[in-house]
C-alpha cells in the first residue's frame, strides 16, 4: 500500500528518537538554581524539535514522499558485496588494532577496502597499505610520543 516504506521508517526513527530523549529528559533534574533552567531544559527542547521533524517527515512520506528527492526508495542496484568488504575492513581494524598493532590493522583495512572497490591485486595493495601506514606510525610514536598499539617494538 505504502509508496515509500523506507521514508516512513526514517520518520518513525525520528519519532522514536524524540521519545528516547523525552524519557531521558524526564529523568534529569530540572532544578536550575538561579538560572531557572536546569539540566533537563535543553533536552526537552531538542526532544520536541525531533518530534516535530518526525511528524513532518511522516506527513511527507505518506503523501507524496520526501520533497525534491530523485533517488526514491531504490536500493535494488546496490553493490552489497563491495559494501561488505569495506565494512569488514573497518570492523576488522577496529577489533584487531590493539592485538596485532597499528600497521597491520591499517593494512588489513586498506586491502579489504580496495577489494570492495574492485581491486584484484591484493598483494600490491598490502604493499601500498603498509607503505601508507608506516610513516604515520613513526610520526605518531617516535616524533610525537603517542602510544599506538605495536606488534613488536617501536618500529612496528
Amino acid at each position: 500500500m505504502l509508496k515509500h516504506p523506507v521514508q516512513l521508517a526514517i520518520a518513525i526513527a525520528f519519532l522514536a528518537l524524540a521519545a528516547v530523549f523525552a524519557i531521558g529528559a524526564s529523568q534529569l533534574p530540572s532544578d536550575g538554581g538561579y538560572a531557572g533552567v536546569g539540566s533537563s531544559f535543553v533536552p526537552w527542547v531538542v526532544s520536541a524539535f525531533l518530534a516535530i521533524i518526525g511528524l513532518l517527515l511522516a506527513y511527507q512520506a505518506v503523501t507524496t514522499g520526501f520533497r525534491s528527492l530523485d533517488a526514491g526508495d531504490a536500493i535494488g542496484s546496490a553493490d552489497r558485496r563491495g559494501a561488505l568488504w569495506v565494512s569488514a575492513g573497518i570492523l576488522l581494524m577496529a577489533a584487531l588494532i590493539t592485538r596485532i598493532g597499528f600497521v597491520p590493522g591499517a593494512t588489513i583495512l586498506f586491502v579489504c577496502a580496495a577489494r570492495g572497490f574492485g581491486s584484484v591485486r591484493p598483494l600490491r595493495d598490502i604493499v601500498i597499505g603498509a607503505f601508507i601506514s608506516f610513516p604515520v606510525f613513526w610520526l605518531f610514536t617516535l616524533v610525537l610520543d603517542v602510544n599506538l598499539p605495536r606488534l613488536i617494538n617501536d618500529w612496528l
Binding site: 569495506v86 573497518i90 583495512l109 577496502a113 580496495a114 572497490f117 601500498i128 601508507i132 599506538l148
Partner: peptide, 17 residues
C-alpha cells in the same frame, strides 16, 4: 580502489589517534 582505501585508512588513523 586505492584512493578510497587510502581515505579510509587516513580517516581511521585520525579517529584512532
Amino acid at each position: 580502489p586505492q584512493l578510497y582505501a587510502g581515505i579510509l585508512v587516513f580517516a581511521s588513523i585520525g579517529v584512532y589517534g
